[in-house]
């Protein structure tokens, strides 16, 4: 004779899910606070090098005093192969450029027009002169420094005199 009642064979009681929305909302708020919005999805692959004692760009992003420029190998394999043959391994990607031909993207000449265009379209409350609007270059580890200096030259020509080299933070040394 068993001491315990046998399962009466009926269906299991329903799980109370009334607190599920609360849990999910909590997660939602956590992610809203802990993350920042992506400014654009680059079509180049960038693996950032590491560095210590960096400056955080978030305050500049909030004031939209920063433009991002990516430098890496194209994600599109076919395109990468095609241009690598011509000796152009690394491609530029500028944020907020909707349509541009690959030829334009390989050419640092297009930076001037892009930067000036972005400067024109800034909200009127932004009073910073173009000298202090940061151009943040996110370059791939393996990219040659020559391109970085080509970019600098283009920026110098239009007096956009602040540049930032993006790196991944590796913390304390």
């Amino acid at each position: 004779m068993s001491k315990f009642k046998k399962d009466s064979g009926g269906s299991a009681p329903a799980i109370n899910t009334s607190s599920l929305p609360d849990i999910v909302f909590m997660l939602l708020f956590f992610f809203m606070v802990a993350t920042t919005s992506k400014e654009s999805d680059p079509s180049v692959k960038v693996i950032k090098p590491e560095g210590a004692r960096t400056t955080d760009m978030t305050p500049y992003k909030q004031k939209s005093e920063i433009d991002f420029l990516y430098l890496g190998k194209p994600l599109n394999k076919a395109r990468a192969a095609q241009y690598a043959e011509m000796g152009m391994e690394y491609m530029l990607f500028m944020d907020n450029v909707v349509q541009s031909t690959p030829d334009l993207l390989y050419n640092t000449n297009s930076i001037q027009a892009w930067k000036l265009d972005k400067f024109e379209s800034k909200p009127p409350r932004m009073t910073e002169p173009i000298e202090s609007v940061i151009t943040c270059v996110k370059a791939d580890k393996g990219a040659p420094s020559g391109i970085i200096f080509d970019i600098r030259k283009e920026l110098q020509a239009i007096e956009a005199l602040t540049i930032a080299y993006a790196v991944g933070e590796n913390g304390e040394k």
């Binding site: 939602l28 992610f31 809203m32 802990a34 993350t35 920042t36 919005s37 992506k38 560095g51 960096t54 400056t55 955080d56 760009m57 978030t58 992003k61 940061i134 943040c136 600098r152 920026l155 110098q156 007096e159 956009a160 005199l161 602040t162 540049i163 930032a164 080299y165 993006a166 790196v167 991944g168 933070e169």
Partner: peptide, 19 residues
Amino acid sequence: FLVTTTMDKDQAYIRNIPK
């Protein structure tokens, strides 16, 4: 929100280009 945001902060070294 998971899709449209990123976790990583942007870290960089700011340098000035001479006139």
